[in-house]
Design a protein around this nucleic acid. Structure first.
Length: 851
RNA sequence: GCCGCUGUGGCGGAACAGGCAGACGCACUGGACUUAAAAUCCGGUGGCCUCCGGGCCGUGCCGGUUCAAAUCCGGCCGGCGGCACCA
């Protein structure tokens, strides 16, 4: 008998499955479809780390089980290849991003393949290939046509020295004082950090980063806010993920109320409030530094110098700094102007403060210090009046934010605040309004390694447009909601690249380093374009799309990855979508999933898709931590490379170990020592072949045991409890160990093992048992109910709630039967000191005698 | 600060839906085999006490509900993650 040698068999079967295309997803199969999706990885230079395989193996075990259960499974892999880290790495090593990405993908593919995952490799995609990004650009154009893609000025992180936009993750959060590394108490360390002033600096040159307004493309995701919220109902998603999406969308209901400016009654300040019932308690207004009205009031503001200085300072603060300072209120009064409270008709002061955000609501608030904690703090600091208008708690040290009956509110006194909200809104001519925190999705990136934005800017068209109305009509015919833009003081017509000209290919460059303009702008060949409309010279948009756009629709491309006419055929989409199971890290709970849902809804509205929600069932994978229980990172030096693990014990034992470590969604520390147990287990499976029995001498007891575990292990996989599934296999083998099995019985065992350890199962199935077809084409075994019913159970006997005895009994006995049997037992009699007052009996499980 | 998750042996974890806490594995340990070691196989392993029959305690802490609590309720403490002035 040969010894178990994973190296010898694993590669062999991987090639066999690949050559036979065993896991090809058949579009025209008449089996029920099942679409399984997992995060397609970002192929970094570092290669796979041990966190990746956890989700992949779990999906593979599940996919193999679902196939054995008679479904046609679509399960494949691709590469989210565009993105900043690759570009930066390429610059660092002096290669092109194309070369780097290609090498990374090659390495990732090799690593992924060594686990023997049952992907349909014919559907592999790569977001950085023109065949893919052509459709990303097409998607952009559809959004543009529908008026869902537009340009506006927006704040970006800008490094004055590198002259480039920085992503949030490129802004280092640097503290002014040096950290004391000897400090061991983590609590006091956090305390220290909080007291230090921090600034955002460029990761490359350490120059402080400022906020700069730049023209950026946005997708109008806010149009879908309400549907993104309500359609979350009914999805089989982790509760916390649904909640986080809801919080992110941030729906709040309130009213917009206008305040007149005293003496200048034609100017009004609009505020959004969720508490119009507290209007009588509004003792001042606050504008955000960005508020447009401030400039309008310039000549009426007596302390303009101070005000403009405050505003300038506030504007260059990075988002990080603003977050840091949260709680420390600053602000300045606009002297010389007053607003009129529409409820009390009294004059109230107007302030500017950066605790009011420009991007939310109307960028201005009515301050009710008695009933809002932030207003309260501000009022205390600047000595502003506090007027209580809701009967509730004391207002001395903090605001009362609850509901109650009104007071000091004229004719509304005594009214319940919920009711008063809308009564008061009506009284002052306000308007009920629903507000969302969700902002439009900024998609422009001033970087090279991404999808070029398929837009051309034409000055000539703009000139004609403004002089001749027939051009205008021409654009109308094209069904575009036409837009114009201003770049460096020159006006342009925004002309979308015609679909027939897609893809706009990403050119190779000499130099990828940022130089103040996007890298693509330095390529004259790329930049110069013929206007598709007037045929004159025009220029291309030189920026690229956020990589979240690439990944917002990749699961649609898997369905029809080689389609040259459409992003995917309608029939195929209808057949395979929506996704039946998506396993993804919790870090993607908001952005990626929100964007994917948004794009699906958009394409649905455009008539391309027949479903509203792309993912029916979602599960998260927990992190694999280092042996030190810290997040794995290069700097901590606790990173484990999966290559080493697979080299050591083979793919099957590794797969089992990943699954055995613990629940899928929990984080677990990596402990290589644990792998040994799984390797031992597989050896025992292998060595069992010396105990195979002739047919006809089937051991009935073994069938009972098998039946029990067919059910248990199948249920575990279905419920994605892979850890107990593996322990089930071990228990099963332990229980079979002293028995002889027929080939058929051993084959049943191998089928249960097959989803978890596909190579060894295949080897034993074909080479030892002599089967001619792959075990992975077999059906999941059926269990015998009558055998399950024959099993005896161990009944627990309690007296006064304490376990005093156990007894082996047939299933299904009545309380009377049980009592007859147990009352004679010494262990029971011993504890029954008086009369039995009460008996609690749970059939086949427990009997409790209360005396 | 707010929100979410989480706390079980030396370790990873198990325990249907309130019903034997610690399955399964790691590590450790006793034995068999071996000249020896490795591998393998058989056994032990929460703590304390024991007259060796067993008894008591035990799932972060305090209290409650129940015949019965790791599980349900109230309060507190620790760990992890997310959000962060959203009017």
């Amino acid at each position: 008998m040969s010894k178990y040698n994973p190296k010898k068999i694993e590669h062999k079967w991987q090639r066999y499955w690949g050559d036979k295309k065993l896991f090809r997803a058949d579009d025209s199969s008449n089996k029920p479809k099942y679409y399984q999706l997992e995060t397609f990885p970002y192929p970094s230079a570092a290669g796979l780390h041990v966190g990746h395989p956890k989700g992949y193996i779990a999906e593979d075990v599940h996919a193999r089980y679902v196939r054995m259960s008679g479904k046609e499974v679509l399960y494949t892999m691709g590469w989210d290849a565009f993105g900043l880290p690759t570009e930066n790495y390429a610059i660092k090593v002096g290669k092109s991003p194309q070369e780097v990405a290609e090498a990374n993908i090659k390495n990732f593919r090799r690593q992924v393949k060594m686990f023997g995952l049952s992907y349909d490799w014919d559907r592999e995609i790569n977001t950085s290939e023109p065949e893919y990004y052509k459709w990303t650009q097409w998607l952009f154009l559809q959004l543009y046509k529908a008026g869902m893609a537009y340009q506006k000025l927006s704040k970006v992180n800008w490094c004055l020295s590198c002259k480039t936009v920085l992503a949030n993750e490129q802004v280092l959060h640097k503290t002014q004082n040096t950290k004391h590394k000897t400090q061991t108490n983590s609590k006091s360390q956090t305390q220290n950090l909080k007291n230090e002033e921090s600034v955002g600096v460029c990761e490359r040159c350490e120059t402080p980063v400022i906020q700069k307004e730049m023209k950026q493309w946005f997708f109008k995701i806010t149009d879908y806010a309400d549907r993104l919220l309500t359609d979350l109902e009914g999805l089989d998603w982790p509760e916390e993920t649904v909640k986080r999406q809801k919080d992110w969308i941030g729906k709040s209901e309130g009213a917009v109320i206008n305040f007149e400016i005293s003496k200048y009654r034609n100017i009004e300040i609009s505020v959004f409030t969720t508490r119009p019932d507290t209007l009588f308690g509004t003792t001042y207004l606050v504008l955000s530094p960005e508020h447009g009205l401030i400039e309008n009031l310039k000549f009426k503001i007596e302390n303009w110098d101070e005000v403009s200085k405050y505003i300038e300072k506030a504007k260059i603060k990075t988002e990080l700094q603003r977050k840091e300072e949260a709680g420390e209120k600053t602000g300045i009064e606009l002297k010389g102007v007053k607003a009129i409270n529409p409820a009390t008709k009294e004059e109230i002061p107007i302030w500017v403060a950066d605790y009011v955000l420009g991007g939310y609501g109307t960028g201005a608030i009515m301050a009710v210090p008695a009933h809002d904690e932030r207003d309260f703090e501000f009022a205390k600091k600047f000595d502003l009046p506090i007027q209580k208008v809701v009967e509730g708690g004391e207002i001395s040290r903090e605001a009362y934010e609850g509901n109650g009956n009104l007071t000091n509110s004229g004719k509304f006194d005594g009214m319940d605040s919920e009711k008063a909200k809308w009564e008061i809104t009506k009284e002052v001519g306000g308007e009920r309004k629903t507000q969302y925190k969700l902002r439009d999705w900024s998609v422009s990136r001033q970087r090279y390694w991404g999808v070029p934005i398929p837009i051309i800017y034409c000055h000539k068209c703009w000139e004609t447009l403004t002089s001749k109305s027939e051009t205008l009509n021409k654009f109308k015919d094209q069904n575009f909601k036409f837009q114009t833009t201003n770049i460096d003081e020159i006006e342009y017509m925004v002309v979308p690249v015609p679909e027939k000209d897609l893809p706009v290919k990403l050119p190779k460059l000499e130099d990828y380093r940022p130089k103040g303009v996007p890298p693509l702008a330095s390529s004259k060949k790329f930049l110069d374009a013929k206007c598709p409309n007037c045929k004159n010279t025009a220029k291309r948009d030189a920026e690229t799309l956020d990589t979240f756009v690439d990944s917002s629709w990749y699961f649609l491309r898997y369905i029809d990855p080689h389609n040259k006419k459409e992003f995917a055929s309608k029939e195929k989409l209808k057949h395979w979508m929506p996704v039946d199971l998506y396993i993804i890290g919790a870090e993607h709970a908001i952005l990626h999933l929100l964007y994917a849902r948004f794009i699906s809804k958009f394409l649905h509205d455009q008539g391309y898709l027949s479903f509203k929600e792309p993912v029916l069932k979602l599960r998260h994978i927990g992190l694999i931590l280092g042996a030190d229980r810290q997040k794995m990172s290069k700097s901590r030096g606790n990173v484990v490379n999966p290559d080493d693990v697979v080299n050591e014990v083979g793919a099957d034992a590794s797969r089992l170990y990943w699954m055995f470590m613990g629940p899928l969604e929990d984080a677990q520390p990596w402990d290589i020592k644990g792998v040994a147990g799984l390797y031992r287990f597989l050896n025992r499976v292998w060595n069992f072949i010396s105990k195979l029995e002739e047919p006809g001498k089937e051991n009935r007891e073994a069938n009972k045991i098998l039946s029990k575990y067919i059910k248990e292990i199948g249920d575990d996989i279905k419920n994605m409890k892979f850890n107990t599934g593996v322990s089930g296999l071990m228990k099963l083998l332990n229980e079979l160990e002293d028995k002889w099995l027929t080939n058929k019985q051993y084959g049943t065992f191998l089928k249960l093992l097959a989803p978890f350890a596909p190579h060894i199962a295949e080897e034993l199935w074909q080479e030892v048992l002599g089967n001619k077809k792959s075990i992975h084409l077999e059906s999941w075994p059926e269990y015998d109910e009558t055998l399950l019913a024959e099993e005896t159970v161990r009944l627990v006997i309690q007296v006064n709630g304490r376990v005093r005895d156990t007894i082996e009994v047939k299933k299904g006995l009545s309380e009377e039967d049980i009592k007859k049997i147990i009352l004679d037992r010494d262990n029971v009699k011993k504890y029954i000191t008086g009369t039995i007052k009460k008996v609690i009996y749970l059939q086949d499980r427990i009997i409790n005698l209360v005396v």
